[in-house]
Amino acid sequence: MTPENRAGYWKANLSLLTILLIIWFIVSYGFGILLVEPLNAIKLGGYPLGFWFAQQGSIYVFLVLIFVYAATMNKLDKKYDVDED
């Protein structure tokens, strides 16, 4: 585990975080609150889409985000040789 490795690993981690948190923000604050009215004009089955994001969709996306984070970080751990084993 060299200092260069650590620095590269941390940079990669921060860019992953940024991407995931932007999605986190868009689905909840964006689709669920700020854009809820225009989205409600679109229907997802019997759900107005904005309402669906606020009460269902954002939660499903949150789940995907955490598992994508966990899987990607495990790969980064190995790539930069900073894993626990």
Binding site: L17, L21, W24, S28, A54, S58, F62, L65, I66, Y69
Partner: peptide
């Protein structure tokens, strides 16, 4: 409540 009490887990997991 629905988004607030679940979205916090993204922050917890990532940060």
């Amino acid at each position: 409540f629905l988004m607030g009490w679940t979205g916090g887990y993204v922050l917890l997991a990532l940060l």
